[in-house]
């Protein structure tokens, strides 16, 4: 260091004059966009979707492939609404609200499309473990029986349940191809990219490369795909086993929120128990820390609560 720079150095005996106290910048309110939904004028912040506007009007809009924590893919088309001036219906979940739009959510056209989408799904997949979808089917009067019994189930839909590890199973007979698991495994959450959509058309299905088993794939068993699956195609092995034995009983279950004991992040866990045994662990979607995502430990690492057993050793080995 030269003499010159020493001379320029601040004299530590002189107190630094007080400056402005730093504060977070004030968040400017987003400008509002006004549109009409079923004749009712509604104002939503710029960048909101039509779904946001519908929800603000308390209009029940069915969704399957949409979830707040993932980028909308608008593939299920069950949320379609009529937009004045548009030749086709538009997906509410991804279409951005624009000033002056006129939306109709309860026209004959909208109801027909929603009903048909639900019928299409129920006629080609097993939707029995999706209470949400079954509820929509009832309110839209969907009747999947009218396509007949012999009608096609996609190839992927007839494959047996994939049980290739001790943590979770994949039953693609229940898959409605909503792309949520792919998004959660990929850029929207985990960045692992173990699964993707393969094949084309009715034979499109979720797969690892060359359909290799999960232990051979890039899967890290975070279970974030299970967290977003709307139809029970991806479930905990514990839940699958209980259901197989006919012992799964939602009425005997409780959910308790707690904080994950493993690391210092502090993820909220919702621990679901039946007969004092943990059967499933999730995290609330609106939880700031997790947005519903967990890691292998938080999601699956709770065997210690019931003492050492053969299963817990297997899990530890798999988790390595």
């Amino acid at each position: 260091m030269s003499d010159q720079s020493l001379a320029d150095a601040p004299d530590l005996t002189v107190p630094v004059p007080p400056g402005p106290v730093p504060s977070a910048p004030v968040r400017e309110r987003r400008p509002e966009v006004e549109l009409s939904v079923d004749g009712q004028l509604v104002s939503v912040p710029e960048g909101s979707t039509l779904l946001d506007a519908c929800r603000q009007c308390e209009i029940d809009t069915p969704t399957l492939c949409y979830v707040e924590t993932l980028t909308p893919v608008n593939v299920c088309r069950v949320c379609v609404v009529e937009l004045e001036g548009s030749r086709t219906l538009v997906p509410a979940c991804s279409r951005k609200a624009e000033p002056g739009m006129e939306i109709r959510t309860d026209t004959e056209r909208v109801r027909l499309s929603r009903r048909m989408v639900l019928e299409f799904l129920a006629s080609s997949t097993d939707v029995t473990q999706s209470p949400e979808l079954c509820g929509y089917m009832e309110s839209y009067g969907a009747d999947p029986e009218r396509y007949g019994e012999r009608d096609a189930q996609a190839e992927s839909k007839t494959q047996p349940v994939k049980v290739d590890n001790e943590l979770y199973v994949r039953d693609y007979a229940k898959c409605v191809l909503c792309y949520k698991c792919v998004e959660a495994c990929g850029e929207d959450a985990q960045n692992t990219f173990a699964i993707a959509v393969a094949g084309r058309g009715f034979d499109a299905h979720i797969a690892t490369e060359f359909d290799v088993s999960l232990p051979e794939s890039a899967c890290v068993y975070c279970g974030n795909c299970i967290g977003v699956c709307p139809t029970g195609a991806l479930v905990f092995k514990a839940e699958h086993d209980l259901r197989e034995r006919g012992e799964w009983d939602a009425s005997r279950q409780e959910s308790t929120d707690t904080i994950c004991p493993y690391c210092g992040v502090g993820c909220t866990l919702s621990v679901q128990t039946q007969d004092n045994q943990i059967v499933k662990v999730t995290s609330p979607l609106d939880q700031e820390v997790t947005s519903g995502n967990l890691c292998i430990k938080g999601r699956f690492g709770w065997q210690f609560t019931t003492g050492p057993s053969e299963t817990s050793d297997d899990v530890a080995a798999d988790g390595e």
């Binding site: 593939v75 396509y147 058309g201």
Partner: peptide, 21 residues
């Protein structure tokens, strides 16, 4: 159309199959 549907959205993925049937 059944063969060429990409399979992304439900109306086309299943609709083209049901139409053919």
């Amino acid at each position: 159309f059944r063969d060429e549907s990409c399979g992304q959205c439900v109306p086309c993925r299943v609709g083209t199959v049901r139409q053919e049937e």
